[in-house]
Design a protein around this nucleic acid. Structure first.
Lengths: 232, 232
DNA sequence: ACCTGAACACCGTTCAAGT
DNA sequence: ACCTGAACACCGTTCAAGT
């Protein structure tokens, strides 16, 4: 970790008049925050393969190697960008007793956060879990516990929900990136309709009510989790 | 696509005696099959980042650019390697009426196939769907249909199961790769136990009965799907 | 039909050096 | 404390050429 929050911005109001044309062009000093924010911009614009230390430095108006003062390496940039995008802004304490509604809300928010940055979903499973991710897990865990899910089952429930949300979001994000590919795939499928009659007929690959499918499937999963608890 | 199946191997028996020492050292000619098989070896050994056109050519004893005669580009190699690893060897026709058992078996086999090649799971969602993948989807779809799942619900069911299996397998594969990281993560978590008391207490990150967790979660999901069908 | 080496435009990161 | 350029050991792929 490096020092954060230089006080640079605080005197901006004073000398605004003295360097009116030049000042806005000169870059603020490098900082962890600026690097991470710019990395997110770059990832949003160009995808995972588009993030390059050189390009990142370019956008920041600095030399490449300057980044390494604030950041360990490229992996580190990924970890930081990912966690920064997963900050949870919802209520940190669950007051209502509608545990199911709370869980659905948390998971839909999670999915939405990741879809706002389509590179994030596929990155998440292989990166270290940052504080924002842990907070989400903590809140989910707490909600399930308070709802009366047995201690022995909480972990299974969390992992099941995690798996479902990750799978759904990763799938959604990657199918979304390539509309042409999807059309091409369905065409190929239609050409081979004798080999894959069922999925050709159900138009599996053309189904694009992603939100609805996500919600319904999550409903099934929660039905299963809830039913199990009710039975004992 | 390039030509396949050169007849090279058929005359091997005849001249085995004439070049006994040299022959086994000389490489067989390049072919799509050899390239794909070697790519899988390389991926198994070195992971996704370890697959390099140059390294692949090295292993094959050829020049780098020779690969490009048989294969479009690196993306193509990924697609082919992935699909080759997902061939389904189980029965192609479902005879038993235990649809739930069949579905569980197909999905556990799918998971096992991917875990045998840990790079495959994280690759699958963003790659084109090859014939072996489509076959698995077709069979799954057929089984759900025969089991009486309404046409309107089959796609939701398939995607839910797909999402769950992908999420579970990707998570498992990536957590497995970094045992040190997992220990470090739990340590960091313990240090921060006031901030994340619930997941620290449940030892979420240390739970490593992956198979059992997968099976239980899948059970919950199928409970949900089955219950819904029984109700209408 | 199949294979090749040179060359191009890139990468991430080390290192020794600047202020 | 913070930033830098040169250099190293890599990449994927184009191209013109060989057999």
């Amino acid at each position: 970790m490096a020092a954060k929050r230089s006080g640079a911005r605080s005197k901006r109001g004073i000398n605004e008049r003295l360097q009116p044309v030049q000042e806005p062009r000169s870059e603020p000093p490098l900082s962890r925050e600026r690097i991470v924010a710019t990395a997110v911009e770059l990832l949003d614009a160009q995808g995972v393969d588009g993030l390059t230390m050189r390009r990142l430095a370019d956008r920041l108006g600095s030399g490449v190697m300057s980044l390494y003062w604030h950041v360990d390496n490229k992996e580190d940039v990924f970890d930081l960008a990912l966690d920064s995008v997963l900050e949870y802004r919802g209520p940190q304490i669950v007051k209502s007793r509608d545990w199911r509604g709370e869980v659905v809300h948390m998971l839909e928010d999670w999915r939405a956060s990741m879809l706002r940055h389509p590179w994030s979903a596929s990155l998440l499973p292989r990166r270290a879990l940052g504080p924002n991710i842990l907070s989400r897990l903590e809140l989910l865990s707490k909600t399930l516990s308070r709802a009366g899910v047995a201690d022995a089952d909480v972990n299974v429930a969390i992992w099941s929900l995690w798996n479902y949300v990750m799978g759904a979001t990763i799938t959604r994000a990657s199918f979304d990136l390539s509309d042409d590919d999807r059309a091409a795939a369905q065409q190929r499928l239609t050409r081979l309709s004798e080999r894959y009659p069922t999925i050709e007929h159900s138009r599996l690959l053309l189904d694009n009510d992603w939100g609805g499918t996500f919600r319904k499937g999550l409903g099934f999963l929660l039905d299963g989790l809830l039913q199990d608890e009710a039975e004992r």
